[in-house]
Nucleic acid binder design. Structure first.
Lengths: 203, 203
DNA sequence: CTGATTTAGTGACAAATGTAACTATTTGCC
DNA sequence: GGCAAATAGTTACATTTGTCACTAAATCAG
């Protein structure tokens, strides 16, 4: 029997999840919380799995995940959210969440996913996996094609000299473009650019 | 009904998987292959999910995953292997695998994991997630503690000046240590170091 | 054609970076 | 104590990097 806690500030979501998951004979919904603080209080009931929204008033999903994992390391937490941004995904997984599903696409199969993660494995939406595997391109789209090429080469560790040879540009041109790129992305130097490319914005 | 294909060069593994998964009423094991080439041939039987070993003779798991995903994009492929190294994991996931489980830890709950991934989500062993989230530390271990601290700060995009303030060192000392670090890891500059930290050695 | 924009380049400059040689201090350890 | 090591620092130097101001060519819309 998998004991569940549902945490979402939208009562409608809570209700429908409760209804949906209550149908499964091997699930038991212990309760519902409307923010992170309430969720922590309810951990005393010893749930196996918590389904948690990220954006919530009072205490958000990330913060409460960290707190819960400290006090109750055995509880598996699955983030359940409407949108994916890479920052939230990384934060959540670092905080100790073992699942990250997008509400939209996956509600139907949620029962299987919850069972899989209740025994410890990590379950992610395919697009979420992609987001943590592939370089961050969200803000990179405001760059021109040529600028993007340069970013990719910087992110491979090439020097301005090498980049200029690869792209048949003068090193001066490369450095000028780099200045523009750093300005657009609000970064200071090529190292921060490489980190940004692979990791996304820090914090 | 989930239709399965099992691909492993060890007949014993195939047999025990077949036995184990055959018990589930909603699974049907379509067949068994002993290498990647055979596996591709058997895709004509339209499996939903393939469980595949990485190391195999004739054609390994990564190569056949790429080929299968090209021809049959709807088939979900789960890597099932005894050891994890970060390179294999990244290669497999880039090749299109949506699962990566370690044989040891997870056989018991495999049925649930297969169900979860048959509908599209990604399933990973917890340690596998960790390997792709956390920085590559294999070669980093030949560094001293102080050196490692510096690497971490470089990998966050700090300048020598900022690092020296954080660690209460002179900037001269920081730069000297950086020279030693770059030498040990056979890298050229701080940007390559940051990339190495987050991405591992290129190629 | 003409003016505006994009793309590329130059030269000059300050700051940051990486390297090297050499010194000073601290910390065990025999 | 004395020696080796690890740790920290200084100075000097060559390169690389990032910025800026300004020019040149190409592209394109009106």
């Amino acid at each position: 029997m998998v004991k569940l806690l549902i945490v979402d500030d939208d009562p409608l979501v809570c209700q429908s999840l409760q209804l949906l998951l209550g149908k499964e004979t091997d699930f038991e919904v212990l309760g519902v919380a409307y923010n992170g603080r309430e969720a922590i209080k309810m951990c005393g009931r010893q749930p196996d799995v918590i389904l948690m929204d990220i954006q919530m008033p009072v205490m958000d999903g990330i913060e409460s995940t960290i707190k819960i994992k400290q006090q109750f390391p055995d509880i598996q937490i699955m983030m359940l959210t409407t949108f994916q941004d890479e920052r939230s995904i990384r934060l959540a997984l670092h905080a100790g969440a073992v699942g990250y599903l997008l509400k939209s696409s996956t509600i139907e199969n949620m029962a299987d996913q919850i069972r899989a993660m209740s025994t410890g494995s990590t379950v992610l939406s395919p697009s979420v996996l992609k987001a943590i595997m592939e370089p961050n391109r969200e803000d990179l789209q405001e760059l021109t094609e040529r600028e993007t090429e340069i970013v990719e080469l910087v992110a491979r560790g090439l020097s301005n000299q090498e980049i200029s040879e690869q792209l048949y540009l003068s090193t001066g041109r490369v450095r000028n473009m780099l200045t523009v790129i750093l300005d657009k992305l609000e970064l200071r130097d090529r190292t921060q650019l490489a980190i940004y490319y692979w990791q996304g914005k820090q914090q």
